[in-house]
């Protein structure tokens, strides 16, 4: 499939429902794929790489999720040799405003940005602009 994909990784279905509507409005040509936690999306990414498929252009990643949370996923991606780091634009999307979370995100140099919920049109416009560059 050649359509461009956005991975939405979050355990909160209400957020995902609302976010999908917002994202579709700003990225009409993209397909949005939902994931419940870090492990689900990690397995999918590995599968894509193995089959030399098309990685998602964009990923919105929550921090607090069961089974494998956002940090744990980032650790896995960091240690992984492959295209994921370079080809996927990853944004942390979280309700946490704790400074230690913001600082921790800075230690992963392959992250594009840190968005605090609620997700707004402004945030998505900003993401779109940096994508186009």
């Amino acid at each position: 499939m050649n359509v461009m994909q956005i991975f939405l990784v979050d355990d909160d279905e209400i957020f995902k429902t609302a976010a999908e509507i917002l994202i579709s409005a700003n990225f009409p040509e993209f397909e949005i794929v939902h994931f419940e936690n870090g492990l689900e999306v990690y397995n999918r990414l590995i599968e894509i790489e193995k089959t030399k498929g098309k990685l998602p252009v964009l990923m919105l990643l929550d921090i607090n999720m069961p089974v494998m949370n956002g940090w744990e996923l980032l650790e896995e991606i960091k240690g992984h040799k492959g295209r994921i780091k370079s080809n996927v634009q990853i944004y942390i999307s979280t309700s946490s405003i704790a400074p230690q979370d913001m600082n921790l995100s800075k230690t992963y140099d392959f992250i594009e940005g840190y968005i605090t919920k609620p997700l707004t049109n402004g945030d998505l416009q900003h993401i779109r602009n940096s994508l186009l560059r």
Partner: peptide, 22 residues
């Protein structure tokens, strides 16, 4: 305590905000 405030309150509050806008 800070964590609770930061996470659960905010995530639910932010959802309400997003949804009301819609």
């Amino acid at each position: 305590f800070t964590n609770i405030v930061s996470h659960n309150l905010r995530s639910n509050a932010s959802n309400i905000s997003m949804l009301s806008g819609m």
